[in-house]
């Protein structure tokens, strides 16, 4: 009897949270369906009739440069997240399972690194990359994202919980080399954690704006964020291409949604696994 009001409050809060998260997405969806003429005349939540026309126009914009940006984003986010996950997993495992001089120092420096927002580093990174002549290349956006302190921290926490010392010990007794232990024993156990890191990094790089904005001068190498921004800020005397930007924003979240749906399985495993073993 008295469970009902207790249940209503959390449910209510969750519903509010869901509305809070879904409203902007539905706004994007509805606005993307409006033709330029409808965008500022129809009511905010009234769907328009121009979605296909908008997509067609976006497709035609500068000979389909949007898809090139999309591809670039996939390269930056996919490649960066994959490399970052591997580096984080290996270094997290090493920090969790090996005792060596300087281990705590490295770990403390990493913790300190988490506290430095990457935004602060963008300009120094740009100047450094300019010095070695690598600004305005794909590497200029990929490399700075590979080493990510928070991911290494996560990997360390996950490795110490998910990889039992006794298992490694047993492997050593059976004569497995350290490399083999890492590849055959530790990494498979860490897959759920690695998926988490991959998703985190993928989303972070996909949405990153400042680093590519600074690093890249050539518009053929822009990711979606910077590319769409160039449609928005077209100088005072050029109209912003609102309908293309909104449609582009809608299309740019589709890969993220697809990624989350396909990886959801692992994500869930990870949360429950962490809850039990942590």
């Amino acid at each position: 009897m008295n469970r009902r009001p207790v249940g209503a409050l959390p449910t209510g809060l969750l519903v509010l949270g869901a509305i809070y998260c879904l409203l902007p997405v539905s706004w994007v969806l509805i606005s993307a369906s409006k033709s330029p003429g409808e965008l500022f005349t129809l009511g905010t939540l009234t769907p328009g009739s121009g979605l296909l026309e908008n997509v067609r126009e976006l497709n035609a914009y500068r000979d389909g440069v949007f898809w090139r940006w999309m591809l670039n984003s996939v390269v930056y986010a996919g490649g960066g997240a994959l490399l970052s996950t591997l580096v984080s997993a290996v270094s997290g495992f090493a920090l969790a399972k090996y005792r060596f001089p300087g281990r705590n120092l490295i770990f403390n420096v990493l913790i300190g690194g988490i506290l430095v927002p990457s935004v602060v580093l963008a300009v120094p990174q740009y100047l450094l990359f300019s010095k070695i002549g690598m600004a305005d290349t794909y590497w200029a956006v990929l490399l700075p994202q590979i080493l990510h302190p928070y991911s290494i921290y996560l990997a360390r926490v996950y490795a110490s919980a998910a990889v039992p010392d006794s298992l490694l010990e047993a492997g050593r007794i059976d004569g497995a080399s350290e490399r083999r232990l890492l590849g055959r024993v530790a990494l498979p156990l860490m897959v759920p954690g690695m998926v988490t890191i991959f998703l985190f990094q993928f989303v972070a790089i996909w949405n990153n704006f400042l680093l590519p904005f600074l690093m890249l001068g050539d518009d053929g190498k822009f990711p979606l964020t910077v590319g769409l921004y160039s449609l928005l800020a077209a100088g005072a005397n050029q109209p912003s291409l609102y309908n293309l930007i909104i449609t582009g924003a809608l299309l740019s979240i589709i890969p993220l949604i697809a990624l989350f749906l396909t990886m959801q399985r692992y994500w869930r495993t990870d949360l429950s696994g962490g809850a039990l073993k942590g």
Binding site: A135, G217, D219, S230, A233, A234
Partner: peptide
């Protein structure tokens, strides 16, 4: 031609690039 975002940010970006020796 490399199409950039316009406005005040474009000016900041050009100044940074010039400082680093990467200006167009």
């Amino acid at each position: 031609v490399s199409k950039q975002a316009g406005g005040d940010d474009a000016a900041a970006k050009f100044l940074t690039a010039a400082k680093a020796g990467n200006a167009p």
